[in-house]
């Protein structure tokens, strides 16, 4: 049996890579993808703890997070689409309407 800390370390690595992606990339779609990747990494940690504690609660939480992620992606891409209609770009540096 692989120690839980290995899975947690892997989850942390993927999460941090996704954080770098959110901070570095400027394409809104890629940023949304990185957020999905963070959710996946967090889900891996949840399932790891679920195995460690011999409890299925963690797996149920991951299942509910999947539903949230699906809704989030649908709405997020809808927002990006409507921004693209107005500004013809998905570059987050160009979307500065609220900046003064």
């Amino acid at each position: 049996m692989i120690p839980s800390s290995y899975y947690l370390a892997l989850s942390a690595i993927i999460f941090v890579i996704a954080v770098v992606g959110v901070l570095v990339r400027r394409n809104a779609i890629v940023i949304l993808m990185c957020i999905e990747m963070m959710m996946g990494a967090a889900g891996l940690a949840f399932v790891t703890f679920s195995r460690y504690l011999n409890s299925l609660d963690g797996q149920v939480v991951v299942f509910l997070v999947m539903a949230v992620a699906a809704a989030e992606v649908a709405v997020g891409l809808g927002i990006i689409l409507s921004i693209f209609r107005h500004k013809e770009t998905t570059d987050v540096d160009e979307i500065n309407l609220l900046k003064w």
């Binding site: 509910l64 539903a67 699906a70 809704a71 649908a74 709405v75 891409l77 809808g78 689409l81 409507s82």
Partner: peptide, 16 residues
């Protein structure tokens, strides 16, 4: 979660 998904569908249609 079911209600959230319904809201997500409606929101995506309205926004897009």
């Amino acid at each position: 979660a079911a209600v959230l998904l319904l809201i997500g569908i409606i929101g995506a249609v309205v926004l897009a």
